[in-house]
Structure formats: C-alpha cells, structure tokens
Design a binder for these strands. Sequence first.
DNA 1: CTGAAAGCGCTTACAG
DNA 2: CTGAAAGCGCTTACAG
Lengths: 350, 350
Amino acid sequence: MPVTLKELAARANVHPSTISRVANNDPGLRIATATRSRIEALLRETGYQPNGIARGLKMRQTNVLAVVIPDITNPFFAALFRGVEDAAAPRGFNVLLCNTDGLPERQRSHLQSLQARRVDGVIIASSFLKDPSVRDLRRQKGPYVLVNRFSDEGEDPFVGSDDLLGGQLATAHLIDLGHTRVGHLAGKSTVSTGMLRRRGYLAAHAAAGFAADPDLIVEAGYTEESGTAAARRLLSLPDPPTAVFAVTDMVAIGAAEVARQMGLRIPEDLAIVGYNDIPLASRVSPGLTTMHVPIHEFGSVAARLLLDQIESDEPTRRRVRFTPDLIVRESTVTGTAKSQRSARPRVSAE
Amino acid sequence: MPVTLKELAARANVHPSTISRVANNDPGLRIATATRSRIEALLRETGYQPNGIARGLKMRQTNVLAVVIPDITNPFFAALFRGVEDAAAPRGFNVLLCNTDGLPERQRSHLQSLQARRVDGVIIASSFLKDPSVRDLRRQKGPYVLVNRFSDEGEDPFVGSDDLLGGQLATAHLIDLGHTRVGHLAGKSTVSTGMLRRRGYLAAHAAAGFAADPDLIVEAGYTEESGTAAARRLLSLPDPPTAVFAVTDMVAIGAAEVARQMGLRIPEDLAIVGYNDIPLASRVSPGLTTMHVPIHEFGSVAARLLLDQIESDEPTRRRVRFTPDLIVRESTVTGTAKSQRSARPRVSAE
DNA sequence: CTGAAAGCGCTTACAG
DNA sequence: CTGAAAGCGCTTACAG
C-alpha cells in the first residue's frame, strides 16, 4: 500500500491538511520554513504520490480521457490515437482506448462504462449517422468530440475532412485520366464518411456530364476483408470498371489484392484511388493514389477541442474540417509520375 | 451531474445504504417486496450508475488496466493491445494505453502516473534488460506482467516467444538455402528480443560449422526508419550479404525497400527473413518469410495472467513462452513455394 | 426488515 | 502560522 497523507502527518507531527498544502504547493500557504523543509524532506523520502482516486472524488476530475474507435489494428485509428495521446499527455491526461469493431451495441456499452468511470471526456471515431449513443451523450452534457465521422451534421463538436469534396476529387482524377466506367467500393450509407464520399463520387460524374452506372457502386464496408469481397463482386461483373474509387485505403488495398489475383495489372487494367493516405498507402506496390488527410492532427485537434471544453467548463459546437489533398501514386498513373500535392492542407474551422 | 445514492434515497424514502444494496444485488438482503420494487423502478427510471470513483476509493479497485508499449502505430503492438482488451473487457476492465516511443524516461513517467491513478495492474511491452522501472514495479508489489520483452530473466511474470530459438530457426533457414554470407539487422542489445535473436543468429552459424562475419551484424533498432538506415549501411558493404535476418518484420520491410531502391531482386539477390508475422508480412510483395508468433495471444494471455493476480490477490512469476514457427514466403524462396508451418504453436509455460 | 455510522484518502473554506 | 471539520459518493459491518 502506498503511503497516505495521514501517515505522513503522524510522522511529521502536523495535520494532514498541512501536508496536502505543501504537496500541492498551495500558493496561499504561510508556513514556518522549518516545518516546510521537514515536510518536503518527508515527501521526497517517501516518494509520496497523492491517491488519484481520492483526489478525483474530491476534485470531480479524473484526468482521464477515452477514445472510442472501431479497431486499433486499422492503421488509420492507430495514427489517430497517437494524435490524441500526444496532445493529452503533456496536459496530464491519460487515455483509455475502446474498440467497438463497428458494433453499435459495443459502442453503447463502452460509453456506458466510461460514464460510470467518470472520465473527463470522450473522443468518438466510431459514430453512425443519427447515432443514438451520440444523442445520449449530447443530452448528458459531458464533454465529447466526434472525429472523422459525424452523427447529425452541425450538432456536435467535430474534427474531420471534407468528405464530399474528397470523394469528388478522387473520382474526378479517374475521370480526368479518361476512365468512363469508374466503380465505387462504397462505405456504409449509415456512416457519414460512406454517405458523403459516395455523394462526391456521384457529383464528379455529374460535373463530367455523364451518369454513374449504379451497378458499379458496391458497398464494401471498412475492413480489408469486406473490401476484398466487394471488389471480387465488382470486378466479376460482365462489364467491369476500368477504375475504382475505394472509400478507404484499407478497402483499396483489399481491392488491389483481388485485382492481382485476377491477373489485372494496376493501373493499366484497373486504376485505384483510396482515401486517408495511411502510412501503408505509400508502402504497398504499386503505391496507392489516395486523398491525404492529416490523421495524426485529427487526433490532436480533437484532443485539444476536448481539453478546452474540460478546462473552460464550456461545451462547444466547434467544427474543424480539413481539406483533403489528392496524392497521385502508381496505382492510377503509370511510370515515374511524381506525387503531386498542394503545399499545406487547408483547414476550415467554424 | 449524474444522480447520486443520496438523492435516490430521498426520493424513495429509504436510507442510501438500502439503495446501494438493491443496486448491487446484495444476496444477504432481506427486504419487503414493495420497497424493493419501488427502488428498482427508481433505479431503472433514473438509469442510476454508481460513481466509479467513489466506488473505487471504497473498494480499493479501479477496474482499469494499463498497457505500456513503444508505439501503437506499429502493427505488432496494435494487435497485442487488441489481445489485451479482448480478454479484459469481458471481465469488466477498461484499458489505458501509454506510448513510450522507446524512451526509458517516458516509460518511467507513464508508470509513475499510472501508479498515482491506482490502476489495478499494468502490462509492459516496452521494457529493457535490467530495467530500473521494472525493478521498481517488482518492489512495489502491485500486479504487472511483462510481454514480448523481459527485464531480468525469470524474475517477473512474462509472456513472449522463445527468441533464441526463433533467431536460430530464421537464420538456419537462410543457411539451408545455401547462403554463406547472412547479415543480421539486429535489435538493440539492451532489449531481450534484440539480444536473444542475435544470439540465435550466431548459434545457427555455429551449428552450421562456420562463423558469422561480425561486419554483417548491424544494429537496426525497431522502427522502419532505423531499419532502412541500417540496411543501407549493410548493403553498401564492399562484400555485402546475399541474405539477411531482420530482428522484426518492420525492419525487414524497411530493408526490402532499400534493396528495391538499390536495384536488388528479392529473393534472387537478397533473401530476407523477418520476425513476428504481423498482418503486413503476408501483404507486402514479395510476401515476407518470417517467424510466426501469436501476437494477439501475447496480449490476451498477458491480460489473463494479470487479471488472475488481481482477482486472487496473489503475485505470480509464471512465464508463458510460445515457440515461434517459420513461415516461408517469397522473400526467401522464389516461385510458388507454399507457406509451410507446423500445425499449432507449441507453448511452454512455467 | 431497514437505518445509522464509519471510513476509503483526499482538498479547502473556515477558525483561531 | 497551523488545525479541525466537512464532504466528495460510495460500501458494509453493526445495531435494533
């Protein structure tokens, strides 16, 4: 058992409250220098650390945040988590990590147990559209921030990318390369990223003056496995696409694998664009053309939005949306085409 | 503010302790059915959740574990973390995640703050040999488990692989293929995995009847970047190796990249073996030959070892060591060579 | 069958 | 300059 205030008080022959004040460097404390140094010596000698639980109960603050994501083995969420921790640790917060595997029920039960633990705030990267769990959170008035996916547009503090624009740019890139049959490995329509990127895909077609073939849109989910399954269906069509925009890099990588298995050359027989620019995207061969978003910053900005709420005790509805940038690699353009990318990610905050 | 026991007591016209007993389903509680159902209705209506902080203070248990790792963006640690959470969540524990980036100082400060938070136990995957932080932990007598890396052999509860054997098998595979100049991209000699895998590398040479060339051993650390730098040095030697055993898959992947940049064909000009069999290993091209270890199980077994200590209130020195299995892929054997692998990972527990 | 009390380990407004 | 007390929200042995 670690040493307690009461024990120290007994050893120093003072009241526990005095030890507490010295340990916490109470600025308003007038104390005899002799007493102070006696106490400080004792503190050092015992390596006293106040019991965080007792402290948390009294101060109504745990200094713990939580991050709720679908799956940490997805590199996107791993990078996002690092962003959160890198922003939270210097401010004295530890971070709980909860994986939902995309199941609303697991999200709900995690959120419930986080509430029971009285974490100071939570960052959610796993929300659905019109998510009941998010609405509960909104009602409870505890600090939270949504990241990457929103639930009800504009209703919650949010950090993410402009997914509509991103979907449009990705698809326009393929159309610009001359492709007329562009497929879409779509996200779920129950998730904001899935819905908006699909809408962007359609908008790019409209802007180019022709309609997308509905048969070329296949729901692919968000895992590599569901991506491969969907890609198999898409590429087995009688009249398959010559290019595909995948809702995420993981899905794109799954599709590339399927293409390889079917003997298709990338990009000659099938061009592929992903989304997010996870580290893996530049490492696979051929390199994956994708929409770059600042993943680590998603996490760190979300953490700052959350910590500001906690410290100010004021809720916010601020939204930070990053503009995604097209990164061209070998999965769409053959040969030595250079990666092109605008100088700095532009941000729109509200 | 969430509802409290006292408020509920006032509304139900009973003593707070009675509410507590009903909420916790106290088996020894004799209570009038009318009172019970009145209280239960109130509990349901308010969705009462006991304050976990107050509960933790009273019960001296937080139901929180912590995992300390170098970096969650390394897929090895992401998989390991999932193993921990998957075992801990069903038993009612949440898990804090702390990244150290391999810095002893950050490990120390994380451990200190975890102790202040009174987490019920900690799993450490970032320890060094003769690690002072681990020795502190040992002295404090709070539950902990080391995973993947140990500090002082046999002194702590541990889950990992037989790294000496693994290093030997990996290297023997290359020697068996006819390579006589086999390089080693080594881990740090201050880390158990680095030390033992290197020793295995040397043992395989001894068993084959010839000595390893010391010039072919280059310290490569544990990140892809440090791996590429080391690989560059190794492959730029006047008389470079024709094969290399890398301490981890991430380092092996870095080496493969360098080889490609230098125009070397894999495996014809350079054969590569990694360690861990992270998901990425089978996905890169050419597929990476590697030593398979059950990463997810590392986490789940470590969690069980930890939870058993917590629940029994008995420390342990149990060690679980998995036997690594060679997985042969295209980075060492050209053509359609099948992955070979023994049926089940063998385990040695003590 | 239910209540009153003590206590987990802190912090802080209030006394003196 | 330092102490005594109250209270954060629970649980549980003890009364009655």
